[in-house]
């Protein structure tokens, strides 16, 4: 059994209360909307790409603490990364959220994002945490339409 404080770590509560990069990016050249039909979480991810590098990233939307904190932490961690690096991070985050990551070596690599590792013990909340990453991926690929966790 995992304690509730393992999910709602201080870092997450902080990002929920004061999300970083929580705004519309006026000069974005990529954008995607994400939606979790199960709980109604909605998010828009804005990217400003230059030569395959994420120069600026921001998000808007409404959702639970987990989805908001995850989106906030995502923007902080992918800024300055290349498209390929961001894709790799998506894979790592996905593994962490579903509990497939090596708890020691794997988690260390995740840096600040490791605060979300408790989510894997709350299966009902995995999609909340992964929504922003799915939406980021859709924006990177320049996909039209709605990204979904389904």
């Amino acid at each position: 059994m995992s304690d509730i404080s393992e999910l709602y770590q201080e870092v997450i509560l902080d990002h929920n209360k004061s999300p970083r990069n929580f705004r519309k990016l006026e000069d974005a050249n990529r954008k995607a909307d994400g939606y979790n039909p199960l709980c109604g979480d909605q998010i828009t991810v804005y990217l400003k790409m230059e030569d395959g590098v994420i120069k600026e990233v921001a998000f808007q939307g409404s959702g639970c603490a987990i989805s908001k904190a995850s989106a906030s932490m995502m923007t902080a961690s992918v800024k300055g990364k290349t498209e390929i690096e961001a894709e790799q991070m998506f894979d790592e985050v996905h593994k962490m959220l579903t509990g497939e990551l090596n708890p020691k070596a794997g988690l260390e690599k995740m840096g600040k994002l490791a605060a979300l590792s408790g989510v894997c013990n709350f299966p009902a909340r995995v999609k909340c945490a992964s929504l922003s990453w799915h939406t980021l991926r859709a924006a990177l690929k320049g996909e039209q339409g709605l990204a979904s966790t389904e």
Partner: peptide, 22 residues
């Protein structure tokens, strides 16, 4: 200041089953 989903998860850990969503 608290999303219903987070309410649902916290009360669940107290043994209380409610619905959160639309």
């Amino acid at each position: 200041g608290v999303h219903p989903h987070d309410i649902g998860t916290v009360v669940d850990r107290e043994g209380v089953a409610i619905r959160a969503g639309h």
